[in-house]
């Protein structure tokens, strides 16, 4: 059976389904903004162990108290930054906003780290 004969056997319903799925893909990717894949979650670690898991979709300001000092983080518009820190040089504050999985903010004097945890870790769970 040639390709042309095969295509003749397909129906208008098939085409509608195909177009609906393509539309779902394009619309979905566009609305999720995959062109700049943002992380979904900020994880704040103190001395290497996770202290807070914060959704980047909820705007808030939070103080992180450690035995070495205090850091203030802010989440706004899906981004997170260190607003202030009680350390002398405040390198972490100058790092500004982060939102992507590959970015992180480190406050060395207080042993505080902000990482973005995103969707990509889940890929490994969905094979086969």
């Amino acid at each position: 059976m040639s390709i042309r004969q095969t295509l003749k056997l397909t129906t208008g319903g098939d085409l509608v389904l195909l177009l609906a799925m393509v539309a779902l893909t394009v619309g979905g990717l566009w609305s999720l903004g995959w062109s700049s894949p943002h992380g979904a979650l900020a994880v704040i670690e103190v001395e290497g162990s996770p202290r807070e898991h914060l959704s980047l979709r909820v705007d808030r300001v939070l103080s992180i108290h450690t035995e070495r000092g205090t850091n203030i983080v802010e989440i706004r518009d899906g981004r997170i930054r260190m607003v202030d820190a009680s350390c002398p040089n405040r390198v972490c504050v100058t790092q500004g906003w982060i939102r992507h999985r590959w970015e992180e903010i480190v406050c060395l004097p207080h042993r505080v780290t902000i990482r973005i945890r995103g969707l990509e870790e889940e890929y490994d769970a969905i094979t086969r």
């Binding site: 619309g27 979905g28 969707l119 889940e122 769970a125």
Partner: peptide, 20 residues
Amino acid sequence: LFVRHPEVFFLLPLMAGAAA
């Protein structure tokens, strides 16, 4: 069973594209 947060459904558009 495995990933209990709803962010996994962000993969749905990609999966629709792959399925198409």
